[in-house]
Computed example of a mutant assay.
Amino acid sequence: MKTIATVCARGGSKGLPRKNVLPFDGKPLIAHTIEQALACPRIEAVYVSTDDDETARVAEQAGAIVPYRRPAELASDAAGKLPVIEHLLQHLEAGGLRIGTVVDLQPTSPLRLPADIEAALDLAGRADLVVSVCEPSHNPYYSLAEAGPDGLLHLSKGEGAARRQDVPAVWGLNGAVYVWQRAALPRAVRDGFWRVSILPSVMPRERSIDIDDAQDFALAQWLFQQRKLQSRP
């Protein structure tokens, strides 16, 4: 039973057009994710699902396998990600591949490290799914509020607390790493993401940027450059 990585990368993007192939530190954005996956010894191959010829070409040049072009019905803004992954896995399994673990990596998280993927893989098998998380900037127990029917703000969760130490730890899914047990994915497609057992794998906030628009892209580039500067002897 193989451990593979999947990368889902549509050609279209409303927030930042063509973001998956935009140059990021001298190479297309998606190439960073593919190289990170290939740097993990336990990942035996990286497969990309895309509807776009340029994305496919860039992905193959970075070392990924692009077995087909994604059908149009799975490449729209309304298409969910889980059916896209399941479609790809079924295609690979129809060709004889036996898959036990699926490491799904979004191409918009270039700041993750191979070590972050490895840390999530270390937890694989202890739950249906391992997800990368980071500490959020706001905690719902004391600093997140929502408007009620009267238009007034009310605390999102809990009864109010004055100190961070007095409330439970909460985590934000950063989208960088998902490690699925293959058998659990059809159940998640059918019943929903939160219907499977999930364990967190913690990443620092500075590696948790998910690029959605030009502002995210600029911030990620700045953080990436800061990392390079700090790593110099």
Results as ranks from 00 to 15, higher is better:
Val7Asn: 06
Ser13Val: 00
Ile209Glu: 07
Gln225Cys: 09
Val130Asp: 00
Tyr68Asn: 09
Gly96Trp: 13
Leu29Ser: 09
Gly148Pro: 08
Gln221Glu: 13
Val131Glu: 10
Leu74Gly: 07
Pro67Gln: 07
Ile4Glu: 08
Gly125Thr: 04
Ser201Ala: 05
Leu89Val: 14
Met203Trp: 12
Tyr178Glu: 04
Pro110Arg: 01
Gln181Ile: 05
Arg232Asn: 04
Cys134Ile: 02
Gly172Ser: 15
Arg112Cys: 03
Glu118Arg: 13
Arg69Tyr: 12
Pro83Asp: 11
Val179Arg: 06
Thr108Ile: 05
Pro23Trp: 03
Ala127Phe: 06
Gln230Ala: 15
Arg187Pro: 03
Gln215Ala: 10
Trp222Val: 11
Cys134Phe: 10
Ile117Lys: 07
Ala45Val: 06
Trp171Thr: 01
Ser201Arg: 06
Glu60Gly: 12
Leu29Val: 01
Val21Gln: 04
Ala218Tyr: 00
Val102Gln: 02
Met1Thr: 13
Gly158Asn: 02
Tyr178Thr: 04
Val170Thr: 00
Gly151Leu: 10
Ser201Pro: 04
Glu60Pro: 11
Val167Ser: 00
Lys157Gly: 03
Ser137Arg: 13
Gln215Tyr: 10
Ser132Glu: 03
Thr55Ala: 07
Val196Phe: 00
Leu16Gly: 06
Trp222Met: 15
His32Pro: 01
Val202Trp: 14
Leu173Met: 02
Arg232Pro: 04
Pro110Glu: 03
Ile209Asn: 06
Ala5Asn: 04
Val66Pro: 10
Ala162Gln: 05
Tyr141Asn: 01
Gly158Arg: 11
Tyr142Asp: 12
Pro186Ile: 01
Ile34Leu: 14
Pro136Ile: 04
Val131Lys: 09
Ala145Gln: 15
Thr55Leu: 12
Ile211Met: 07
Val179Thr: 03
Ser137Leu: 15
Ala115His: 11
Gln61Met: 13
Gly125Phe: 02
Leu113Glu: 15
Ser132Val: 00
Pro200Phe: 03
Val177Tyr: 09
Ile30Gly: 10
Val7Lys: 06
Ala45Thr: 05
Pro23Glu: 07
Phe217Lys: 02
Arg69Thr: 03
Val167Ala: 03
Asn20Lys: 08
Asp116Pro: 07
Arg18Ile: 00
Ile30Leu: 13
Glu118Tyr: 14
Ser143His: 05
Tyr68Ala: 06
Lys19Gly: 06
Asp150Pro: 03
Val170Met: 04
Ser49Asp: 13
Ala72Gly: 08
Asp210Trp: 13
Glu73Cys: 15
